Amino acid sequence: MTTQMTDGITYEGESFQICGCNGPEFFDPKEHGLNPKAPSTACYRGWVGEYIVTDRLFLRDLYVFHDAGLPVKNKTANGPVIGGVAPTKPESWGGFNCFYKDLNFSTSFSGGLLIASGFVRELAVNMGYHPFWKYTRVIELLFEDGKLLEASDKSSVAQEIREKHLVPGFLNRPSLSDDQAVMKWIEDSFSLRYSLVGAP
């Protein structure tokens, strides 16, 4: 298992990672003619977005490994034009073959996002996505039909949950002898669904 690449997001001029999502997918590459495949074990879904929040949520840039079915084609920027933007080949970034710069796709997302910065390196686990409580700064953004409704600082909540997780044992990993608990832990590690109360 490998730590997964996370989507980035710019909010109020600062860079964050998206580490939690309650709501539907807010961008689906397949709806735009892309066939994303994993370029490596660090990105099983095959794509990574860079978002920006103004009064709305926009997908600014998109990195994707578009599988055109032929190895030779897959070495080039072979994806379709999206919203008037043609892909270019990224300069050695994650194994992707298509980079859509300044796509600026307006989303219609309704739900909550947790964005975070200040990752606590001592809590690194080489599997799945890092949950929000492993970051020192956490902000929850609430959207309706892509429009930003509310932003609230959840850093203290993350700290409380982080401290609870460190009490039962190192990173709260389940016993390897408990197959069911291990499978749930793995499943949770690859999900971005979040809860701001108790253990994620």
Rank of each mutant, 00 (worst) to 15 (best):
A77V: 01
P80K: 06
P71Y: 06
L34M: 04
G20N: 08
N126G: 01
V53S: 07
L113S: 01
R56A: 08
E50S: 12
C43V: 01
N35R: 04
K30F: 09
D67S: 08
L114Q: 03
P29L: 12
N104L: 05
P71K: 11
K89R: 14
D28T: 06
V72L: 15
I115A: 03
V64D: 10
V64Y: 08
D61N: 09
N35C: 09
G111C: 10
P39A: 01
R45S: 04
G20M: 13
G94K: 11
N22V: 03
L123E: 06
G112R: 15
C43T: 02
A42W: 13
H32L: 05
G94F: 11
R45V: 00
E31K: 12
I52R: 05
W47H: 04
G112E: 08
W93G: 05
G118Q: 04
V120A: 12
Y44I: 05
T107H: 10
C43D: 15
E31Q: 08
N104C: 06
V64A: 10
T41F: 14
V125D: 10
T54G: 06
G46Y: 00
N104W: 13
T107V: 03
K30M: 14
R56N: 14
P39E: 02
T107G: 01
G33M: 00
V48K: 14
T76H: 15
S106G: 15
P90L: 01
R56S: 11
L123N: 12
F58D: 07
K89A: 03
F96N: 04
A124D: 10
V81E: 06
C19T: 13
G111I: 12
K89I: 02
W47E: 02
V64P: 13
Y63V: 00
L70F: 13
D102V: 00
K75I: 09
P90V: 00
I82N: 04
M127S: 08
I18E: 00
P87L: 03
S108M: 12
G118I: 02
N78T: 00
F58E: 10
T88P: 11
R121P: 06
E31H: 09
K37Y: 06
E91A: 10
V120K: 15
V64H: 06
G128L: 05
P80L: 07
I52W: 09
A38I: 03
E91T: 11
S117D: 11
H66G: 14
S110D: 02
L62A: 02
D61A: 03
W93C: 07
D102W: 03
F58R: 01
V64N: 15
D67P: 05
A42E: 13
P80M: 05
S92V: 09
T54V: 03
S110T: 05
G46A: 01
